[in-house]
Design a protein around this nucleic acid. Structure first.
Lengths: 350, 350
DNA sequence: CGGAAAATTTGTAACGATATAGATGAGGCT
DNA sequence: AGCCTCATCTATATCGTTACAAATTTTCCG
C-alpha cells in the first residue's frame, strides 16, 4: 500500500467509511432501508414482501428506496431463517463429457432460472461413489431446493428416495416405476423407430444400433423402437455387442471396424450419439465403404456439428437446451407448491 | 397418497417425529453435538476448528461424535456469520456453446474443488447486458469467494475491476494490461506458429487462419504466432474475413466455400476450433478438393472428436479439463491468502 | 495449603432476515 | 366520554455459526 493510499485513508469521511470495505459501496441491508425511510426493519421486510397490512404508500416508498440503493436480500440470512436455499442443484456425472451434452442443458437451465432468485449449483457425482450419494447429501443437508439429474434408470434409486421424501426434483429420462414422477424425456422410442424406417426406406437390409448402457431406461426405449421397426419390416438386425454409447470412441470404432470386415455385416446403423456416428463413418472410411451405398447411417444430432459433416448424414434432432429449459421451468413450478405430477412431465417429440 | 401412507403416518413415534421433516434424520447442528458431549456450543465450535486452547482429548472426542452423527456445518449460518460463501462462481457466456468447451472446464473445476467446502455456481452472462455486470454483481453482493471467467480481452474491464478491489479471481486467457493478474492460458501463439510450420512443411503455399473475434486477447496471440511463422517462411497468407470462430458454423462454411472457389485460394488452413475445422473440411468436400493434397488443415483439438474424423486431420491438443483444474487450484490458493501473482499464472504449453 | 498462573471451558452478542405476537393511533359507535 | 375496531407499524425471538470477553477449573509454586 502506497503513501497516497494511506493519505487517502486518513481523509475518509463518514459516508465513505461504510463503503471502504467493498470498494463499491457497502452492501445495503434492511437496516439501511429502515434508516433511510425512518421505518422499522420489520416493516421494511414486510413492505418488500408486499404484505397487505402495510400501507400501499409505504410499500411503494420502501420499494423505491430499495431499488435506488440497489438492495438485494442477503441469501445467507434468508436461507438461514427460512430454510429455503434458492439453489437448484444439477447433479452431473463428469463422465458425460459427451460433446456438450451438459453445456446445452446448463444453458437451458440458466435460461429458465433467469430473473428468479435461484442459482444453479453444479454437484459432481464422482464415479467412485454410489450414484445416490450426492442426492442423499443434498437432501439431508438441505443444499438445494430442487435437484436435477440425468441418465435415469428403470428402478432409479434417486427417484425413489426423492419421491419418498417428497423432495422437488426433475430428471432427464423416465423410470419404469409404478409411481409417476416428474421428468423431461426425449422420445427415444420414436427416434429409433423412425431412424430404422428411414434406413430401410433408403435400402438398408440389415440394421445395427449402438445402444447406451443397459442400465439406463432410454436404452430400453431405443431398443424397443428399433425392434418394433425391424419386426414390422421383417428385416435383419443386431445390436452392437461389447460397446455402448459410453464407450471410448476409439473402442466403438474398433468394434465397428472389425464388424464391418466380417460377413453378414449390417449396412444400416443407428447412432444415439454424435461421436458414435462419427465412429461409424470412420470405420466405413477405413474400409473404403461408401456411405449411402455400402453403409447407411442415421444419427441423433444434439449440436450443430453434423451440419458440417461430409458426406451429409441423415440426422434426427434432440434439443437438449430445450430439455434443460423445461426441466428448469417444471422444477420451479414444483418448488412453488404442490402440482399434479402429470403437469411435471414432458416428452420431447421427435 | 394411499391409505397405507396415512396409516404409517399415524404410527409415528417420538423419535421419528424430529426426523419426519427430512425423512433422513434431523439435521445435526453444533447444538446436537453439544448435547451429546455435554459441552457448550462454543466449545464444540472451537473444538471442530481445532483451536489449540481446547484440550486435545476434547477435540478428538468432539470430532468423533461429529463424524458419527454426520455433522456438517450449515453453510448459510457460516456464510452469514463469517462472510465467506464457500462458493466459486463460474461466469459463463451461454454463447460458448462450442462443443463442450464449458463442460470440460467444469469437469476440471469440480475436480479441483473436490474435497473442499467449495461449491461451483454457474452464473450466466446474458448477451444483452454488459460483460462486467455479473462480475460486479457477484462482488458487490458477495455472492462468491472467487470468480472464474473466460474469453479475456486485452483491456478486460472485469480484470481491472477485480484487481482494483483485490477480489480473488482467475481468468482463462491473458490481458495486455501493465498490471500482472492471475490467469490460466493456453499458448495460442505457439499453437498458431507450429500449426503454420506444419502446414508449410506439408507443402502448403498460402496459409489462412480463422481467428476468434478481435476483442479477445487470444485472437492477437494466434495472429502473432501465425504472422511470425509466415514471415519467417516468406509465404503467402491471409486471415479469414468476415467470419470468426464464433460465427455460425454454416456462415464459416459458406465463407470458406466461396473463398475456395476463387483464384489465389489458400491451400493451408489453421483452425482454432473443431467446428471451424469441420467447416473447412465440408467446404473442401463440396468443392471436391482433396484434403492433404489440394487443401491442408491443422486444427486445435479439445475433445476426442477428431479421433473419429476422416480423412485424418493433423491436430494440436488443448486440454481444457486441465485448464479448469488449474483455475480451480490457483483460485483456491488465492482465496486461502495473499500469494505472489506470478504463482497464480499458468501457461499451458502446446 | 493459599494463591497466582496456566489451561480449559463458557456466555453473550452479532451476522441479516422473517414469523409471531403485540403495540400504536385513528376513527366509529353508543 | 368511553370503548371497540381496524389499519398500520413495531418489538422480540430465532435460524446456526463464530468473535470476543469472561468464567471456571486445573496446575504449580512457595
Amino acid at each position: 500500500m502506497s503513501l497516497e493510499d494511506l493519505g487517502d485513508k486518513g481523509r475518509r469521511a463518514k459516508s465513505e467509511r461504510a463503503a471502504a470495505k467493498s470498494g463499491v459501496g457497502a452492501k445495503p441491508t434492511l437496516k439501511t432501508i429502515a434508516e433511510l425511510t425512518g421505518l422499522a426493519v420489520t416493516t421494511v421486510s414486510h413492505a418488500l414482501a408486499d404484505a397487505p397490512q402495510i400501507a400501499l404508500e409505504t410499500r411503494q416508498r420502501v420499494r423505491k428506496v430499495a431499488a435506488d440503493i440497489g438492495y438485494l436480500p442477503d441469501r445467507a440470512a434468508q436461507r438461514l431463517r427460512t430454510g429455503r436455499t434458492n439453489v437448484i442443484s444439477l447433479v452431473l456425472d463428469p463422465h458425460e463429457e459427451i460433446l456438450g451434452y451438459a453445456t446445452s442443458m446448463i444453458n437451458g437451465l440458466t435460461e429458465a432460472l433467469r430473473g428468479t432468485a435461484y442459482h444453479l449449483v453444479i454437484t459432481p457425482h464422482f464415479s467412485d461413489t454410489p450414484q445416490i450419494e450426492p442426492v442423499r447429501h443434498i437432501m439431508r443437508n438441505r443444499m438445494a431446493d430442487g435437484i436435477v439429474f440425468t441418465r435415469t434408470e428403470p428402478a432409479d434409486e434417486r427417484v425413489k428416495l426423492l419421491m419418498e421424501n417428497n423432495f422437488p426434483f426433475i430428471c432427464h429420462g423416465r423410470t419404469e416405476l409404478a409411481t409417476a414422477h416428474p421428468y423431461v424425456d426425449y422420445d427415444n422410442y420414436s427416434f429409433a423407430y423412425q431412424a430404422a424406417k428411414k434406413l430401410i426406406a433408403a435400402g438398408a437390409r440389415k440394421l445395427s444400433i449402438i445402444l447406451p448402457p443397459e442400465r439406463f431406461t432410454f436404452a430400453h426405449h431405443l431398443r424397443h423402437g428399433f425392434m418394433t421397426a425391424v419386426r414390422e419390416e421383417g428385416i435383419g438386425f443386431e445390436t452392437a455387442k461389447g460397446v455402448t454409447l459410453d464407450s471410448k470412441s476409439d473402442d466403438i470404432r474398433d468394434y465397428l471396424f472389425h464388424r464391418m470386415g466380417e460377413p453378414e455385416r449390417p449396412d444400416g446403423y443407428i447412432c444415439g450419439g454424435e461421436v458414435s456416428a462419427l465412429a461409424v463413418m470412420a470405420s466405413a472410411y477405413d474400409h473404403r465403404l461408401e456411405l449411402g451405398r455400402d453403409i447407411r447411417l442415421v444419427a441423433k444430432q444434439t449440436s450443430g456439428l453434423f451440419d458440417q459433416i461430409r458426406p451429409r448424414v441423415e440426422t434426427i434432432y434432440e434439443d437438449l437446451t430445450e430439455a434443460g429449459f423445461l426441466m428448469g421451468k417444471l422444477l420451479l413450478k414444483r418448488i412453488a407448491g404442490p402440482v399434479p405430477i402429470q403437469e411435471l412431465q414432458a416428452l420431447q417429440t421427435v
